[in-house]
């Protein structure tokens, strides 16, 4: 399943997630529930910065999950397997369920297929050639 389809399904089934975006390890948007690419990038950037801020709180490692619950809503970001999924919710969302839904969505997205390389196979010399 591609990222956009998985995110559409997430929003349909979750009931708590309002907007969501998936980005790759380089920060490029793989899929989003947003029609506006700039909005999708803004959500992705905010999630990336939140993970970076979270990482600064721990001396030895980076953050893999950030859940920020505010009176005006929530921001959730989850990093797994080189990809990051970020979502916003309405106020009072159940954090555990949102994280479960995000993880499930991320698992449904197909891993990028490795590029097939053509390898030139050298044919063995025929027996008659040696003479």
């Amino acid at each position: 399943m591609n990222a956009s389809s998985a995110l559409e399904e997430l929003v349909k089934l979750s009931g708590q997630v309002e907007r969501a975006v998936v980005v790759d390890a380089n920060g490029a948007v793989l899929g989003s529930t947003e029609d506006d690419a700039a909005e999708a990038q803004r959500l992705a950037d905010a999630a990336g910065r939140a993970l970076a801020v979270g990482g600064e709180l721990h001396a030895s490692t980076e953050a893999v999950r950030v859940e920020i619950e505010l009176a005006e809503g929530g921001l959730f970001a989850l990093r797994e397997g080189g990809r990051t999924i970020a979502a916003t919710t309405a106020p009072g969302a159940t954090a555990g369920l949102v994280v479960y839904d995000l993880r499930t969505c991320l698992e449904r997205i197909d891993a990028p297929k490795p590029r097939r390389r053509r390898v030139k196979v050298q044919e063995p010399p025929e027996e008659g050639d040696e003479a």
């Binding site: 979270g54 721990h58 980076e62 953050a63 893999v64 999950r65 950030v66 920020i68 619950e69 009176a71």
Partner: peptide, 12 residues
């Protein structure tokens, strides 16, 4: 007012 908090999790 719902509780405002942030949770940060690490790989360990």
């Amino acid at each position: 007012r719902p509780a405002e908090r942030a949770t940060v999790a690490f790989p360990d």
